[in-house]
Amino acid sequence: MLDFDALGAGDDEGDAIIEPRQIFTTLVRKPRFKFPSANQGEVLDKWFAKRDRADNTIKMNTGSGKMMVGLLVLQSSLNEGVGPAVYITPDNYLAKQVLQESRDLGIASTTEPDDPDFLAHKSILVVNIDKLVNGKSVFGVGAQGVKIPVGAIVVDDAHACLEAVADQFSISLPSEHEAYAELLELFEDDLRQQSRLGLVEIKSNDPQTLMLVPFWAWQDKAENVLKILHKHRESKELRFSWPLLKSVMSLCSCCLAAVAWRSRRAACR
């Protein structure tokens, strides 16, 4: 009889190489990757020693090879059974660079969250921050719960990514949007009390004028604001931000101007 339990023997996670430097030596890579630099090696060693921590911050200078470090960190995590693994960039341009780097290194990668190899912890997903953080994220949002669990994640250029996240937690409406006119009408008396001239300039499309809706007015008319925005929730300006903000509108601030209406969560200002 065949011993089916013996099939695949030696493929256990415990037998996988998890030390990043050793992983590098096993990769079928392009000739330009001879070995990690002293700086890369030191960073990888220090990360490996602290990999059990939930969060680690790695600081490396531009041009010092942080892409390779990030990819090896994620491959190490996958080899250790911590996955799926995601490499996050602030934009598509950097994402393309990471994809090319992974191919040159011989590390499997993909741009598709539903890729079977990614879901099976066999490749690294490379996407920009907007793919991860938005009101309709394929990874799951709010009451939807987690749709795609993430075991290991590298955020490249964290400062730029945080700026992108802040933009996701804001709503900008052009003055020609129907909701803009409705909101301007809703707060017209409050803005008039604040500045008659300012209101006149906003209604005259003066691009230099900006008025903040008084906090008390925003709170008093919160239900009306929700009704207006809910009605337009499927418009392109609201589709991806509304699900993130709808339950915290009371924590938002609102600015009205001739060019756009903007609501931003206070914590992201």
Rank of each mutant, 00 (worst) to 15 (best):
M1A: 15
D5Y: 09
G10K: 04
E13I: 00
E13L: 06
G14H: 04
G14N: 04
E19R: 02
E19G: 00
Q22Y: 00
Q22N: 07
F24N: 01
T25A: 10
L27E: 11
R29G: 00
P31T: 12
P31F: 02
P31W: 03
K34S: 11
P36E: 09
E42C: 01
L44A: 05
A49C: 04
K50M: 01
R53P: 00
I58Y: 02
N61T: 07
M67C: 11
L72I: 04
V73P: 00
N79A: 14
V82E: 06
V82I: 13
Y87P: 03
Y87D: 01
P90I: 05
L99V: 15
L105C: 13
A108N: 13
S109G: 06
P116C: 10
L119V: 08
A120H: 06
A120F: 04
L125M: 10
V127Q: 14
V133N: 00
N134I: 06
K136E: 14
S137Q: 01
G140T: 09
A143N: 11
Q144H: 09
K147H: 08
P149F: 02
P149S: 08
V150T: 05
A152S: 12
V155M: 09
A158C: 10
L162W: 09
L162K: 05
A166Y: 03
L173I: 08
A179F: 01
E182Q: 15
R192A: 15
R192Q: 14
E201Y: 02
E201M: 12
P207E: 06
Q208N: 12
T209H: 00
A217Q: 12
W218Q: 13
L226K: 15
E234I: 05
K236V: 09
P243F: 07
K246D: 10
V248F: 02
V248H: 13
C255P: 00
A257F: 03
V259M: 08
A260F: 07
W261A: 12
R264G: 09
R265N: 10
R265A: 13
A267Y: 10
C268M: 13
C268K: 07
